[in-house]
Design a protein around this nucleic acid. Structure first.
Length: 492
RNA sequence: CGGGGAGUAGCGCAGGCCGGUAGCGCAUCUGGUUUGGGACCAGGGGGUCGCAGGUUCGAAUCCUGUCUCCCCGACCA
């Protein structure tokens, strides 16, 4: 019987408890790296499948590039290299040998030192653009619209399950275009794909925006992002899409002949979301009883729990009806598990599936069968109702849809309540130290002020929202004139 | 890298100050009774106490060194 830490007791511990006890992931023998367990991986697979289809529908194809990046390629785009230099794992040797002084132990073979060190990719722009150079000669070769599903390594000082681990899974899109306009359109299109995915599938409301130069991806001209709000009032960047200009084309000398036979550098974008989204999902919807999975990407949507009886005939009646319900739901594309494990009792199962956040639970006993009903419990509100067997499948489908939109609306209401305008510095600090959330405030537009605010409050500018209304005002810190508000928050 | 915490059975912990050959809860196994919100009774199995030295007749316990993990901060998606 595992008890969870509550959010009020210790938010971080609550989060860890949910991940570990909910069966999403486990710590591993490697510092900062985690094991994604089947239930967590199932969630990732669902997210991946939906996103993959959305990428394909917008004209992209998948490919795969190497894990290792020769150092000389890695350093070609200076800003990008600099940005990631501090968190790179480096391969320097390619062989081990038995330690002559300590039998049974291995040491690095000094004679197997690599001519050139290999960087374990923290992102793949370098290896990909060195390849694109060979693929692009003419405007007829463009655009190149490629995505890859991969793992990357960023040697972070401090890690947190899913939110920040040394190795993580993600997808990275890398596109090449003939014109600046087309590349910007691509950047915005993919941001929109991410936002749609977050809102419609993860039930996670996000703010679309652009990053300030301070927060911009190393090597990008413009970084677009979607920002979400967690229940503890901290913001979380859920996805980014970068307009890379011609920076990588210039660094890797990627040129094409346009229709007028002029040689031009190509325009680039890159965009990504990672397993971090799972952390966002957990912190957006879950409660003190455990995880809460949005039906559209839940690893398991419906669980059927029988109420056991000793009488074999009664048991068979329950089994038959449960299987009938399961098959009917499956026929509608709903994922269902009939948990007829008779070594666990129903109460234990109820608690277990609540911990795992399964959206709908159907309980089925003889009492129900005699009345031609089942007991249906929804995870989001924990409401239980008796529902007639007649038309059950349609009701469950509607219920799943309802849970999905309820989760979104709940998260949206919370998010909107927690976007607060600040007019004075005192107010600004009070909001951050109080309930947190996004603070909408004027900023004088300088990196210096942004840094100073970060130093004083730990809050950063999460984004300048797209379609932000212009409004004359004064910078919250310096009082210098400002044309628009930006969103500040403490963030993951 | 700085600050804090922890390594004892699969998990969570006690024991340590005061050295005498390891214990509790959960889980697990067997049998039985149970089953509509984390069942109960009885019996059983499981640990070179993170690692390496040292002190001692004897070390989970004392001393020295070392490794690892977690949390908070600096870095970052």
């Amino acid at each position: 019987m595992s008890t969870l830490t509550t959010r009020a007791q210790d938010y971080s511990q609550w989060y860890n408890d949910l991940i570990l006890k909910g069966g999403l992931a486990d710590y591993s023998a490697v510092r900062g790296c985690m094991v994604i367990k089947p239930y967590g991986y199932g969630l990732w697979e669902n997210m991946r499948d939906v996103l993959d289809k959305m990428f394909k529908d917008t004209g992209h194809q998948n490919a795969y590039f190497p894990l290792f990046v020769p150092k000389s390629l890695f350093e070609a785009e200076e800003k990008n290299a600099e940005g990631f230099a501090k968190e790179c794992a480096i391969v320097t040797h390619y062989r081990l040998k038995t330690d002559p002084n300590n039998k049974g132990k291995l040491i690095v073979d000094p004679s197997a030192k690599l001519e050139e060190e290999l960087i374990v990719r923290p992102t793949s722009e370098a290896i990909i653009w060195s390849t694109y150079k060979n693929w692009i000669q003419s405007y007829r070769d463009l655009p190149i619209l490629i995505n890859q599903w991969a793992n990357v390594v960023r040697w972070e000082m401090r890690t947190r399950l899913f939110l920040r681990t040394a190795e993580f899974l993600w997808q990275e899109g890398h596109t090449a275009h003939a014109t600046k306009q087309e590349a910007i359109e691509e950047t915005e299109r993919m941001l929109d794909v991410y936002a749609t995915f977050a809102e419609e599938y993860m039930a996670l409301p996000v703010i679309r925006g652009v990053k300030t130069p301070n927060e911009r991806f190393a090597g990008a001209e413009e970084t677009y992002c979607i920002e979400a709000l967690m229940q503890d009032g901290k913001a979380l960047q859920a996805g980014t899409s970068h307009f890379l200009g011609q920076n990588f084309a210039k660094a890797f000398d990627v040129k094409f002949s346009d229709k007028d036979n002029n040689l031009e550098h190509v325009w680039a974008t890159s965009w990504g979301v990672s397993t971090r989204l799972i952390g966002a999902l957990v912190m957006a919807h879950s409660d003190d009883q455990g995880l809460v999975m949005p039906p559209r990407i839940a690893p398991l949507q419906v669980v059927i729990v029988p109420i056991p009886v000793k009488d074999p005939a009664g048991k068979e009646r329950i089994d038959n009806k449960a299987l009938e319900i399961m098959n009917a739901l499956k026929a509608q594309g709903i994922s269902v598990k009939y948990d007829n494990d008779d070594t666990a009792r129903p109460g234990w199962k109820f608690a277990e599936y609540e911990l795992k956040g399964v959206p709908v639970r159907i309980a089925l006993g003889l009492r129900d069968l005699d009345n031609n009903v089942v007991e249906v419990a929804r995870r989001d509100t924990k409401e239980k109702t008796s529902i007639p067997l007649e038309g059950l499948t349609g009701r469950i489908e509607n219920l799943l849809t309802d849970i999905q939109s309820n989760l979104y609306n709940r998260a949206l209401a919370f998010r909107n309540e927690n976007i607060v305008k600040a007019y004075t510095w005192e107010e600004f600090v009070a909001i951050l130290d109080g309930k947190g959330g996004f603070v909408s405030a004027h900023w004088d537009g300088t990196p210096e002020t942004e840094d100073k605010i970060k130093e004083m409050t730990k809050a950063t500018i999460r984004c300048i929202p797209l379609n932000n209304p212009f409004e004359d005002g004064k910078c919250i810190l310096t009082g210098a004139p400002s044309k628009q508000r930006v969103l500040f928050a403490r963030a993951y």
